[in-house]
Amino acid sequence: MTEVVSLSNNKSAAVHLSVPSLQLPDMTSAAETMLSKALDYCAQKVNVGDYETIVKRLESGDSLTSGFFQYSLANQLAEYLGVLDEDIRAVYLYDYDATPEDMAFAQLRQASLIRLIVWTRRKTNALQALIAAASRALSDKYAGLVGTDERKHVLDVQVIDDSDVNQRIGYGGLLSSVQYQPIRLWQR
């Protein structure tokens, strides 16, 4: 599946046509590859040989298996986005709760979204479209993997720019946080 992003009514992207390719790559096959590699990673980390067991654990919301699976997906996606959009400076993975100690208790309780922070030189609609396409493809493929028709929302991506980072606005403040320092997955 190839998605074409329309740039009509998109002033920022129209001005910066050097940034991401307007013809988005085949996200479906990319998502398939990512899921497959994530299963391999999981199998290695939880020391389980067959995918069936891994998938069953994912279906049941096993936090350990889900954590490894999501980490691998996040890593691959970070690299994918970084390669496709030359404005991206770095991609981070983060969790949140009110305090680090409470985050530790919450992690035991539930599987969560893959929460990424994408730090880019400038926010463009093209990047948003790329992220949306990746999110759709991953959600579709993940739903297929765990055997449900329900398209599960698996990804949350916060896009920040230099101004957010320098002024510590919103998620930009997390990069210099001590309490919740996100883990850097990829950087240019």
Partner: peptide, 22 residues
Amino acid sequence: ALEHQIRADNAAAVRARIIVEG
């Protein structure tokens, strides 16, 4: 949730009279 949610640019717009920092 996160750090630095109430900043110089939005503090004046906060209408709550009590803030309890979780």
